[in-house]
Nucleic acid binder design. Structure first.
Lengths: 208, 208
DNA sequence: GTCTATATTTCGATAGAC
DNA sequence: GTCTATCGAAATATAGAC
């Protein structure tokens, strides 16, 4: 225990998150992590053998958070509409507070594919089951036939992309960070509205 | 002129695109570019002074393609619905043929913000004008009041995100590259359907 | 556990012969 | 224009004292 009531290991891990999240694997520097943690470079190697394994810790922590909650929501007993609303509410809220995570995760998967195999197994995630569950429940409760994968990807797209596009919005649209925060705040209501509207569109056709 | 009817400079540029597009700036290696072009490392420096300026050429070429077409469509004389359909059709088609571009561009903006200032000026792009144009035209023709920025970002999200998430779909969902291609193909009809459905949803409220 | 010093590797860039 | 050889600057990783 020392500064800030954290062990040295904890401070290094926290520093790693900060650096990896914003810079990715290739862009991150062990020196910057050490500085951020207020320790020497060697200590980082002492606790986490090398950059690779340190990154793995950080990556799995981030990705695990998102997967866990997703599973919770979609395998719960809620009606499908409530699931969608709950999921979006949670996701948009969580992402607004961790707006660097989407880029970090996608970039991690891009730079280092195969990062996941083990993690998925360890967490007993079965995305195919999740997708099937959505399909069945939509059919049962709303009496419409949608392609669940496209629908699921649509939800993710509308939630996640605006965070990936932050540099685009800032530089191309010339937004200030404050305006951007406001924009993300607005999406918490706009996105569910958009998605549920689209669903109603499908609903009309078969029932009339 | 030499191999493949291309000048050496052209071959180096083509090789650079291939490497930068898939690896980004940080991940790209001058050596790999040289190999890919079938020349020596020094020649790359001979034609393009350094890595930075080489990247700039590649980045501006990629981003320019997307911006130009976007401008063309949204400042045309088409009705708004046709614009949306034309835009989506073009974008989904173009991205399916250049599925690495979204990651390359967003990653480029992330790694090197400020990459754009000059380019936007040179191209006389005014995204704010484009957004305003959408707002006015939707109001005029469809008689509904939408937030044009959110709507525009929604279109981009649904078009672009699935390409950013390719590693996710491949590894998490266990898709094969063929299935992924099929998935992108399907989106050419699914995405316009989804977006126009959502618009109809808004249309109902004010008119009833 | 923590530090200083240093080894090792990788990579962008240049010098100079042809 | 194109090549070989090499420099010099990071950046990861380790050795070894305390």
């Amino acid at each position: 225990m020392d500064k800030n009531n954290q062990t040295t290991e904890e401070r290094i891990l926290a520093a790693s998150k900060k650096v990896f999240h914003t810079r990715g694997f290739d862009g991150a520097r062990m020196q910057e992590i050490a500085n951020e943690a207020g320790v020497n470079k060697s200590l980082v190697h002492y606790y986490f053998r090398n950059k690779e394994s340190l990154f793995k810790s950080v990556f799995e922590d981030a990705f695990g958070q998102l997967l866990t909650k997703m599973n919770e929501v979609f395998f719960s007993d809620l009606p499908i509409i409530a699931k969608i609303e709950t999921f979006l509410h949670f996701y948009l809220d969580f992402l607004a507070m961790n707006s660097y995570l989407p880029w970090f995760i996608l970039n991690g998967l891009h730079e280092r594919p195969g990062q996941l195999k083990e993690l998925m197994d360890r967490m007993q995630m079965s995305p195919q089951r999740l997708i099937n569950r959505i399909h069945d429940q939509v059919k049962e409760e709303l009496n419409i036939e949608i392609d669940p994968l496209h629908f699921f990807i649509n939800m993710l797209s509308l939630s996640i992309f605006p965070f990936l596009a932050r540099p685009l919005i800032l530089s191309v649209l010339g937004y200030s960070p404050e305006m951007l925060g406001q924009f993300y705040e607005e999406r918490k209501t706009k996105v569910p509205e958009f998605i549920l509207n689209a669903l109603k569109g499908y609903e009309n056709y078969p029932s009339k």
